[in-house]
Amino acid sequence: MSTAKKSAPMRSALGRVRHLGSAKEGVQHWWAQRLTALALVPLTLWFVASIAWLAGADHAGFTGWVARPHNALLMILLLGAGFHHAQLGLQVVIEDYVHGEGAKLAALIVVKFAALLLALAGIFAVLKIAFGA
């Protein structure tokens, strides 16, 4: 037993010998949530301004607006970043409040599948309008 311990390593001796350690993905969820948040700041402002601008527009007016390339692109970005951000956030809420392992897993699966389905449905609708089907 050494008396002068300068720093007690948290990693096991075997782990150090094998160079095992962090897979460098510990902050992946946190980082993805911040990146999507950052993207959503301008996208949200653009979205709300657009909705206000489109208030009272008829079908032709609305689809004509969506079909313009930059609007279609920004709407797809909004849907992608928005649903990714939403499912990351809901995941944390579920992990915090749903304690039963089975219920937690079920809720996570539902949220992740629903977010992907809704994002794709929204993007599909935008593309359908944009390509004039």
Binding site: H59, L79, A86, L90, A121, A125, I129
Partner: peptide
């Protein structure tokens, strides 16, 4: 955040309605 996640249903409904016709 939870309310907005629920509200996105409305956005997708709105876009899908526009895509399916007048």
């Amino acid at each position: 955040g939870i309310a907005l996640a629920a509200g996105t249903l409305l956005l997708v409904y709105w876009l899908s309605a526009a895509a399916s016709g007048a």
